[in-house]
Write a protein that binds this DNA or RNA. Sequence first.
RNA 1: GAGACGCUGGUGUAAUGGCAGCACAACGGGUUGUGGACCCGUUUGUAGCGGUUCGAAACCGCUGCGUCUCCCCA
Length: 450
Amino acid sequence: MPTYQAPRGMRDLLPEEAAGFDRLFAVVMARARRYGYPRIVTPIAEDREVFLRTSGQSSDTAGKEMYDVSLHGQAGLGLRPEGTAPVARAYLEHGLHRAPQPVRFSYWDPMFRGQRPQKLRYRQFWQWGLECFGAPEPSADVEIIEFTAGLLAEVGLTDHVLKLNTIGGAESREKVKAALTEYFTKYRDELDEDSKERLRTSVLRIVDSKDPRTREIAAGAPKVSDLISDDDRAHFVAVSDGLDRLGIRYEVDPRKVRGLDYYTRTVFEFVLTDPEYTQAGEISVAGGGRYDGLVRTMGGPDVPGVGVAGGVDVLYFALKTQGVKVDESVNADVYVLSGDPDDGADRIQLATPLREAGFRVAIDYSKRSLDKQLESALKHGAKVAVIRGTEESRGGKVIVRDLVAKEQRVTRLAAVVVEVGRHVPKWPKPRLIDEPGAAGETPFLADPRD
RNA sequence: GAGACGCUGGUGUAAUGGCAGCACAACGGGUUGUGGACCCGUUUGUAGCGGUUCGAAACCGCUGCGUCUCCCCA
């Protein structure tokens, strides 16, 4: 073990894995754009109150699990444990509640929670998410869920199930809480310790308890669906009908509640079903719901909202478990070699036009024998070697050798780009300025995989 | 945050109180220079700190990190 290690619960993404994340990023964010959810980037830290006010005091996530950020003793900031509250804060701060509604955002950012690390549960982890403000309609809930189902299908994740529930709107929730509190208080002495505590802090969660006896008791508890208002019920029916019509399968799970206090009405989770992930309870790959009171909680107007957040790390590993190829080769396709031990700058000069053309080109800097340089290029995964400084490659000529086919040709320097192009692909170059004549065609950054 | 179990070169492992070894990888050289082979050689480790002991990778304590069960949750 090295002297220094990454901080607990945080990890390095080595190039292959980072490339895999990049691919997921491209897929998720391109889909978000297609749905009209442009990306927003918020700071990595916020005033701790942003999370404490919105998530609720019963939530560890925004409480004891939040990283403090301080500068010269001035505290008060926390590393973001989730994405919705910062986006809501930005929505309010920039007066976007007065922009045409609804206002939609997507994000992809690292989150931080000071929990004890376990499989697929890191202290720094990545989340993608969608938020829609100002749309009270059930269609917004349905679209968010349809987006997620479509995304999982698009990336090839099959082993999952959608669980759906409603916990009622703000008024109904008061009724629900009161009824559940009354019910569970009768059994107070039989509840497990955690649930006794929840009796005070978040009754809803008792329904979700893992303790066997508590579960028995919870089985007889009043049903949330019987306590909510007619409007809430109508909303839920509209959401389920919408999903039915779109052919999206789901299970209604009356025990499904969510950890963060700001949720109202619709809550849902996409849960992994591969045995690898089901031993230890449920692991969800994405989850979300409606949060109609959130903006108001933050001191803004009464704006409804609905959103979803997904764990990138979870998605990544679930895909790998399923055998989906996520990682991308990060090798250079072309290696520049030379028999001349002292021509470092010439090797770079040789690589330049190839790189400009879009090939991935690495250089052997050494003065080793050509033999060893070739072997090294092969071990680095190169498909083509471009060789200078040998007998054959005198006078403005180079050798282009296909390392796979084990064939080579001597070619003029001016033709090297063409010759290399016969063996390996060019990769698209992102451009900051549109090429002449392309005006209006691609107003956004091009998807590199197009 | 609580409990349990773990931690030996880059990777995988051996050594159960008595010389830290092996394989792969990496690096260098050779095979008189266009290849992953082969040959020779080199580098790198007991997670950290302390204790017990003539002697510790091993036993004890603290810390760090990981995995599992809770908690919480993506």
